[in-house]
Amino acid sequence: MENNNQIKSKHPFNKEGSSVQAVERALLLLKLIGENPSSISVGDLAKQAALNRTTAWRLIGTLENQGFVEKDPFSKGYQLGYALHQLTSKNDSYGYLIRRARNTLLKLKEEMGETVLLSVPKHDGTLTIDQIDTDHSVRLVDYTHTISPLHCTSNGKILLSLLPQKELDILLEQPLEPLSKYSITDPEELRKELEKIRVQKVGISIGELDENENAISAPIFNKKKDLVAFITLGGPSFRLTKEDLLLSSDRMLDAAKKIEEQIE
């Protein structure tokens, strides 16, 4: 008569198998995160999935490393990540916004002669969902489908400037990584920069992400006044100077307004 160990070895897809069980548990966690209206803590996930906290932490860590879940830096809870949207919708989750903004992006690129980007806010940065490159041979790198940090980008600083004070305080307690020699790493200096953005309504980055690139961004709001995206003009620093960016502020705000008129 076969014992239990023999039975398990002959049935590798048995639910009791450790590898399959881990997959099943990870999928359960994804379902629970997806069903939750806001970010959810690992403790609550473990409780709802009837898992011990260590197992839940290990599974969530794996899902986070692969981009299937994202950690909210403020609540420390988890929500579904961008990798899952890529697999299930081929970027259709942003298709509506891209289609509505595309004509404005094209027109801005033709007028300004530099690369134009469309990005959306994320908890840990900004995600570029569309990029229209300049015709010049020297141009920005392709940022499409990449997440850029908040403290050293023109669109990221806009997002920081719009955060409630408590959330901003929590974020600025974390070290600000220098991505270039011009990155702002002093929290108080960054706060002063954010005050300027609140007044000027545009964000500017002068070599802060890459010392050879400059950029300016404007926020895009929906009809409910929720922040939904950013439009950015960027180019090499030798061609797109700080003075050029400042002179284009009104044009950027006008482009953002035109996109707002096209979305709900």
Rank of each mutant, 00 (worst) to 15 (best):
K122S: 05
A218W: 14
Q131R: 11
K122M: 14
L190K: 01
D169Y: 03
Q165S: 11
K192T: 05
F221R: 09
Q174T: 06
I206P: 01
N222K: 07
D186Y: 00
H151G: 04
L162K: 14
E189F: 00
E114T: 04
T185P: 00
K166C: 03
L160P: 10
V141N: 04
E208V: 01
P164E: 04
Q131A: 14
E213Y: 08
I147Y: 01
L176Y: 08
V202F: 15
V202D: 11
M112R: 13
G156I: 07
M112E: 15
D133G: 04
L176F: 02
E189R: 03
K181F: 02
A218C: 14
Q165F: 03
L179T: 06
S119E: 07
E189V: 01
T144E: 15
I147H: 01
L190V: 02
I184S: 00
I184K: 01
T115Y: 05
N214L: 09
K157P: 05
K224P: 09
Q174N: 09
T146M: 04
L171Q: 15
P121S: 03
E114A: 13
L140Q: 08
V199D: 02
S161W: 10
G156E: 07
V120C: 06
S148T: 11
D130G: 11
S119M: 13
S205M: 03
K192C: 00
D142H: 12
